[in-house]
């Protein structure tokens, strides 16, 4: 591992307010159709199913009535120091672009799954099956994301195609594509969340809402002590939820 955090002038980040997430799954539905993830017949086999965005159920492990639950939507964490990139033998995944989004180029991927094993967040999915849409449904595919054949690894890209579009829109409007307004580029899950639990923007841009949100005393990142420096932040006012963000010893 290179052990170096990669810095970019723009750092796209997501801030997820766990206290507002009802666990409805609208983010997952938004993600799947936006990114051409095929409807999977045997989706209850979670070892084989693909969901770039996945809602986890968290519990404080207490018995009724002290039990509490929370829902944690998990996109790719876009690590500042991604463990998946250093293990890729063919540079099919890289973190080399302004914005800090970890790329994944499907035709280049050889399907070795080193990255799947390396990712501590389980965000990477191997395509076990060729994607099949029911008859005619391929007419509804989104032109913004390519379709992956089986045998390659895929993952959340922060709807990167929306960024390229936002930049184009800025160019045509005569604005600076490297200094987008807050909200000009948001991911599909963020846009469609009915609870408004998800926020998105440039963490380094003081004009963007997330710039302040990540400084909240209630903000945390997943497995921070691994040094992955992720670009996804979670917010919860519940201490037990924050404690689940990393592996703590009993004494901590």
């Amino acid at each position: 591992m290179s052990g170096q955090k990669k810095e970019f002038p723009i750092t796209w980040g997501m801030v997820i307010d766990i206290d507002k997430c009802t666990g409805c799954g609208a983010c997952m539905a938004s993600c799947q159709t936006e990114n051409n993830v095929e409807p999977q017949r045997e989706a209850s086999n979670k070892l084989r199913a693909t969901s770039w965005m996945l809602v986890y159920e968290l519990t404080n492990d207490k018995a009724f009535p002290n039990h509490d639950i929370a829902y944690l939507p998990r996109p790719c964490q876009q690590c500042g120091n991604p463990p998946c990139v250093s293990v890729c033998p063919v540079i099919a995944t890289d973190k080399n672009e302004n914005g800090g989004i970890v790329s994944q180029v499907y035709p280049r991927c050889i399907g070795c799954r080193y990255c799947v094993a390396a990712c501590p967040y389980h965000v990477r999915y191997f395509g076990w099956y060729d994607p099949i849409w029911p008859e005619g449904m391929d007419k509804t595919l989104s032109p913004m994301t390519s379709v992956r054949p089986r045998g390659v690894v895929e993952k959340c890209t922060f709807c990167h195609h929306r960024w390229t579009q936002a930049k184009d829109a800025a160019r045509v409007a005569g604005k600076d594509p490297e200094n987008l307004d807050d909200g000009a580029y948001v991911t599909s899950c963020v846009q469609n969340c009915p609870s408004g639990a998800l926020a998105f923007g440039d963490i380094k841009n003081p004009k963007h809402k997330v710039h302040e949100l990540v400084k909240s005393p209630y903000a945390f990142r997943l497995l921070e002590r691994l040094g992955t420096e992720t670009q996804v932040y979670y917010i919860s006012r519940r201490e037990w939820v924050r404690k689940l963000g990393d592996n703590y010893l009993k004494s901590e």
Binding site: D94, N96, E97, N98, I101, S103, Q104, V105, M144, T145, S146, T157, H160, H161, T164
Partner: peptide, 10 residues
Amino acid sequence: TSNACFVCHK
């Protein structure tokens, strides 16, 4: 100009 993967790939 950058030649990063995601500059052109989707």
